[in-house]
C-alpha cells in the first residue's frame, strides 16, 4: 500500500487568457504532498480551468505548474497525463469496456505486464469495496455510486502521485454522495495521494479539504485550512460564500475533546443531560443537547467522567469574528 507517495503541487503565477477574457488570473498556491486541496467558487470562477491546466488538457497562457518541483509544461503532455489520476463528474467510463478493462486503462497504456495489471485491478476492487463479480460488467450495468467508485479506482490504478477530481460526486444523490466522500477520505489517507479537487459545494469543500482555495472571477480570494476559512473569512465575498451559518459549520470541524470542558462541574446536576464522547463533533454535541432540552452535556471517555460542556461555551465558539 505504501508504494504510492504523494507529490507536492505548486501553481506559480498561472494565467489563462481566451482572447480578451482572463479565465485564470495570476494563480499562486502550493499543495503539500499527500494533502487534499479543494478549489471552490461560483460557476465561471476558473476552478475547472485551473484543474485542467495541471494535466495540460488546457495549456496555461503564462506561469508555471510544478509537481515535485518539476515544471509540467515541459515535456510530453501524454506522458504527463499517464502519471496523473483524473476523475470527472460524468465518470467518462468507457461504455464499451468492462469494469476490469476500464480500471486497467492507464497500466495498459504504460505497458505493465498482464499479471501485474490483473493483481492491481483485484486490489483496487477490494479497496473501493466492489464484488469481484463486477469485474466483467459494463458501466451501463452499474449504479451511479458504483460507477463513481470505478472512476476513482481507474484514476488510482497506476499509483499516480497526484489525482485531479472535477466534481466527482456531484451527480449522485446526497446519501450516496456522503458515503462516497467518506470512502474517498479513507482511501486518500491510506494511499497518501495528493489530490486537487474541484467543487461548487462549500460543505463538500469543508468536509474534504485539508486546504480550501476560494476562487472568484479567475482570482484566488483565500487559501486556508477550512477551520480558518470559517473563523476568519478574508472578505465579504468569502463570508457570504461560506454561508451565514459558518459558525455552525465550524462546529462540525471541532471536537468535544478540544472544547472548554469544566471538569469541576457538579456531576449530580447532570442527571438527564446527554452523554458526550470526546471524539464527537461540537455540532453533534449541540444537536444532542438541544434534543434533550438540556443546558449541559456530560462528557465521558468510556467510563471516565471528564466534566461538563455547557451551551454557553458552545455559543461562545459560534460567535466567530466577522470580517472588517
Amino acid at each position: 500500500m505504501a508504494e504510492t507517495r504523494g507529490a507536492t503541487v505548486e501553481f506559480r503565477s498561472v494565467t489563462k487568457r481566451y482572447g480578451d477574457t482572463v479565465a485564470v488570473d495570476g494563480l499562486s498556491f502550493a499543495v503539500p504532498a499527500g494533502r487534499i486541496c479543494v478549489l471552490v467558487g461560483p460557476s465561471g470562477c476558473g476552478k475547472t480551468t485551473s484543474l485542467r491546466m495541471v494535466n495540460r488538457l488546457i495549456e496555461p497562457t503564462s506561469g508555471e505548474i510544478l509537481i515535485d518541483g518539476e515544471n509540467v509544461l515541459q515535456g510530453d503532455p501524454t506522458e504527463l497525463r499517464r502519471r496523473i489520476g483524473y476523475v470527472i463528474q460524468q465518470t467518462g467510463l468507457f461504455p464499451h469496456q468492462t469494469v476490469a478493462d476500464n480500471i486497467a486503462t492507464v497500466p495498459r497504456l504504460l505497458g505493465w505486464p498482464k499479471e501485474r495489471i490483473g493483481a492491481r485491478v483485484d486490489e483496487l476492487l477490494t479497496l473501493i469495496g466492489l464484488d469481484v463479480r463486477m469485474l466483467r460488467r459494463y458501466p451501463a450495468q452499474l449504479s451511479g455510486g458504483e460507477r463513481q467508485r470505478v472512476g476513482v479506482a481507474r484514476a488510482m490504478a497506476a499509483r499516480p502521485p497526484v489525482m485531479l477530481m472535477d466534481e466527482p460526486f456531484a451527480a449522485v444523490d446526497p446519501i450516496v454522495r456522503e458515503r462516497l466522500q467518506n470512502e474517498f477520505l479513507r482511501l486518500q489517507r491510506d494511499q497518501g495521494i495528493t489530490v486537487i479537487f474541484v467543487t461548487h459545494d462549500i460543505d463538500e469543500a469543508i468536509k474534504l479539504g485539508d486546504r480550501v482555495a476560494i476562487m472568484r472571477a479567475g482570482k484566488l480570494v483565500q487559501y486556508a485550512p477550512p477551520g480558518e476559512l470559517l473563523a476568519h473569512p478574508a472578505d465579504d465575498f468569502v463570508a457570504r460564500f461560506v454561508g451565514s451559518d459558518r459558525g455552525l459549520k465550524r462546529l462540525s470541524l471541532l471536537t468535544v475533546g478540544g472544547a472548554d470542558i469544566d471538569p469541576n462541574f457538579d456531576r449530580s446536576r447532570l442527571d438527564g443531560a446527554p452523554v458526550l464522547s470526546p471524539s464527537m463533533t461540537l455540532r453533534d454535541a449541540l444537536a444532542a443537547m438541544l434534543a434533550s432540552e438540556s443546558q449541559t452535556g456530560k462528557v465521558m471517555d468510556g467510563d471516565r467522567y471528564l466534566g461538563a460542556l455547557t451551551l454557553a461555551k458552545i455559543g461562545a465558539m459560534l460567535r466567530v469574528e466577522t470580517p472588517a
Binding site: L80, Y86, G92, L93, F94, P95, H96, T105
Partner: peptide, 25 residues
Amino acid sequence: SEVRDAALGMGYTPRAILWRIELPL
C-alpha cells in the same frame, strides 16, 4: 464528450482515441 475528455486526461494519444474509443463506440 466526457468519455473523450477522460481518455485524453488519462494519456490516450489522439490516434488511440480514434481507434480504441471513438470507432468502437
